[in-house]
Structures are given as structure tokens and as C-alpha cells.
Simulated scan of single mutants.
Amino acid sequence: MIRLLLADDQALVRGALAALLDLETDLTVVAQVGRGDEVLAAARESGAEVCLLDIEMPGLTGLEVAEQLRAELPGVRSLIVTTFGRPGYVRRALDAGAAGFVVKDTPARELADAVRRVHAGLRVVDPGLAAESLMAGPSPLTVREAEILRLALDGSPVAAIARAAHLSQGTVRNHLSAAIGKTGASTRAEAARVAQSRGWL
């Protein structure tokens, strides 16, 4: 039996995934959590072999959890299962140590097969997203530019972004200007939305 941990902040989704995967004779769900920062302890305690991770969760994102699992529990494989099928996320997930990336509307049989393949040491990526990811290429944003755009997502003024990032307002403006150019946007709000939609944030 392949021991699975499900991490998703939506209880209904988690329950549905558990019910579907438990129908498989060789898969068993041994733990379920609703926050990213609960995964590591739950994986240790349950002896999970594959962790199915949503990307956007409270505590830690699925990408951060994949990185944490790779560092702390290298024998445990992680599979990103998300509604956010953004090309940039695929690359970031694989860079973080995830063994696979599929979207939530994947048919149950394909999801179960993805779990088995990841458990066997293979990499599994939704084919459509893999092609989009290759076409889109890596994020052109620096780590700092991405950080500044994340802070700009809610429309915060430059002064507030500067305080949060511990930078001068001039430096923040420079980063925003560079990010606007790289995303082909005309405003910082548009640049933040473009970067988010491509999975760069």
C-alpha cells in the first residue's frame, strides 16, 4: 500500500480526493491537513510516502512545503495538485523538489496513476502545462522584483511597500520599473497581475 498525505485548505476538496484515492486497492490516505505548516509533522507521524499538496494554503505554500520535505524527509515524494495551472508554477514546483504537478480536474484514474509513478521515483507533469511552461521559459524577475510585486498586489503605496521590504522608496520604484518592463505591463498593478497569472509570484 502506498501511504498518502493530503494537504489542502478546502475540507470539501480534501475529503473528495481522499474518497477517490481510497477506492484504489494499492493506495491509502493516512493523513489530511488543512495548512502547509502542518505537513512536515503529519508526514513524520503518519509515515506518509507521497504528499499531495495544494499550492495556495495558509502557513506555508505547497511550493515551500515541497522544499521543506526535500530537505527534512528526502524519502517522501511530493505531488502538487492544484487548481492553479500556471506555467511558472510548474518550473518553481520542480525546482522546489516536487516530483510532479497536476491540476485538480485531472480524472481520478490519472491522478491515482500519477501518485503511483511519483512513488516509483518518476516525474509526472500535466502535459499541457509542461508544454506551456517550456514555451513561457523561466521567470525573468529577480527574487527581489518578485517580492516587491507580491507586496504591490493589493495596491499598497510605494511607501508601504518600502517599509515592508526594508528598502528605500527609490529602490522600490527602481524594482517596480524593472518588473513593469519585464512583464510588458504599463502599471505596477498590471505587472503584479501579469506575474501572478504566469505563476512567477
Rank of each mutant, 00 (worst) to 15 (best):
R163S: 10
I80W: 03
T82N: 05
G128H: 10
R92L: 05
L63E: 11
L27S: 00
E72Q: 15
A130D: 14
V29H: 08
R193I: 03
E110N: 12
I2M: 14
L149T: 06
L141S: 03
P58L: 09
R198G: 06
G181H: 13
R123C: 04
E56I: 06
F101K: 05
A136G: 08
R123Q: 12
R163E: 14
R116V: 09
A192P: 01
A71F: 04
V125W: 06
V194Q: 07
E110M: 13
A98E: 10
A42H: 01
L153N: 01
P58A: 10
I55A: 00
L17I: 12
I80D: 07
M57S: 10
P74F: 06
A16R: 11
A165V: 05
A164P: 02
R123L: 04
D105P: 03
L40T: 12
D37G: 10
L153H: 05
V118G: 00
D113A: 15
A120K: 12
H166G: 12
G184E: 10
R150H: 06
L167D: 07
L23W: 09
L129M: 12
T171F: 03
G199W: 03
G121D: 13
I180M: 07
E56Y: 08
R86N: 13
L73W: 09
Q68H: 14
L63Q: 08
A191W: 11
R92D: 11
V194P: 00
T83Y: 05
R70E: 06
G128W: 07
S133Y: 08
A7P: 04
S139M: 10
P87A: 14
A130F: 11
A130W: 09
G88F: 08
L40E: 14
E67L: 03
R14P: 01
A31N: 02
T61Q: 01
G36N: 03
P74I: 09
A152V: 10
R109A: 15
E72K: 12
L149P: 01
G47Q: 13
G181Q: 15
G15N: 13
V90W: 09
E64L: 04
A48T: 00
R44T: 13
A48D: 09
V90L: 09
V50T: 05
S78P: 01
L201K: 04
T82I: 04
I161A: 06
P87K: 02
L111R: 06
G128E: 12
V194G: 04
R150F: 05
A195F: 12
T25Y: 06
K104D: 08
T25P: 15
A93V: 04
R44Q: 15
A11M: 07
S133R: 01
L73T: 06
A165H: 09
Q68M: 14
R3Y: 02
E38H: 15
F84L: 15
V13E: 00
L79V: 07
R117K: 15
V39P: 02
L111D: 00
D113R: 13
A48I: 02
L141D: 04
L53E: 06
I55Y: 03
R91T: 15
P140Y: 12
V143Q: 13
L63S: 11
